[in-house]
Design a protein around this nucleic acid. Structure first.
Lengths: 188, 188
DNA sequence: ATTATCTATAGATCTATAGATAATGC
DNA sequence: ATTATCTATAGATCTATAGATAATGC
């Protein structure tokens, strides 16, 4: 069959895309291998040929998502004014934001396979944020905080706004609110 | 049996406590009626005598939790300096925070029974926060934002810090970080 | 009578394993 | 040979319904 001509790498990418959608809709625990398989025209058992367990599929989704989040590059090179644009960009991708937010919420439950991933990720994001802030402002921001104090707040605002926005996009202007916060950090 | 002497109201309260624990550990979708029942020494079918469906149990948990969150009273009467204490208090109740955070995360998925609850709740919390801020500062906070601009940020910081703290309590001093943020809002 | 619980069980799912079959690449 | 898929199926669960039994409150 012509469709079967797709190389293995493409098939895996298709599956990851489908998994991202299904997780956005139902979370990881609520997602089923069957639902993901159906979206790519495979049986559930056919899908297990590419990812041997449901957990392996989640891990692959997380690894890919972490790259997307940084726009392909590292967060290392970021500048503060790019953060606002990142939030603009996220506001155009509700599906991705929803996958991420659903997984973050689930990850605090016991034995969740994404827990270690998120713990590690946040430690890293806080460090990178602090370093971006230090590059911009030095050891003390105009608002009075140190980069290390501001970093967890910056991260918290991004995540917290995402939930409010996902639940009620009409009422919450996520990018504007985030810029308000950036203004607060940088106001002298 | 002596244990059977507990009145129906007490039994329901026991079940709600157990449900809160199980949801903290596994989320709503991951929680099973059997696990909740076991904790109160009932069979799964016995539990369904008190709450006819799993969803009815969740709704009851949410209603009770919303009261706890306000410390028993309304949020209406709050003053800004009490918010810091609320976060101190939350830092002593990781189980409750975890239940709440797990449900919030799940609630953005499709058809989740807590979704309407959270949407309503956040609209209300933003209004109440704005009104607290207006009572304290008038139409413009020292940091330069209006109460309506600051309210979603305040809410976002609380929620976002909770996730970072649940994932890594050693690395995140949630109450201190929240006070840093309050300082930012109120700094002239 | 009503309330509290239990046993039995139907009816749905879900993940993962086993093993067959067909196509692809040497 | 290896890769891609499929059918069959084992083995676990899970929610919810039906109906019995025992205790409680009039």
């Amino acid at each position: 069959m012509a469709a079967a001509r797709a190389r293995s790498g493409e098939r895996r990418a298709e599956i990851l895309r489908a998994a991202l959608e299904v997780i956005a809709e139902r979370g990881y625990r609520g997602a089923t291998l069957g639902a993901v398989a159906e979206r790519v025209g495979l049986t559930q058992q056919g899908l297990l040929h590419y990812f041997p367990t449901k957990e392996a599929l989640l891990v692959a989704v997380l690894e890919e998502r972490d790259q997307w989040d940084t726009g392909g590059g590292t967060r290392e090179g970021w500048r503060l004014d790019l953060l606002g644009s990142l939030v603009d960009y996220n506001a155009m991708r509700p599906g991705i934001v929803q996958t991420f937010s659903a997984l973050l919420g689930e990850s605090v439950t016991e034995g969740h396979p994404a827990r270690a991933f998120f713990t590690r990720r946040y430690a890293q994001v806080r460090e990178e944020m602090a370093s971006v802030l230090r590059a911009e402002y030095g050891d003390r921001l105009p608002g009075g905080l140190t980069p290390e104090q501001a970093a967890p707040l910056l991260t918290a605002v991004m995540d917290g706004l995402q939930y409010q926005w996902l639940l009620d996009p009409e009422s919450v202007d996520m990018p504007a609110a985030f810029r308000d916060f950036l203004g607060l950090l940088g106001a002298r």
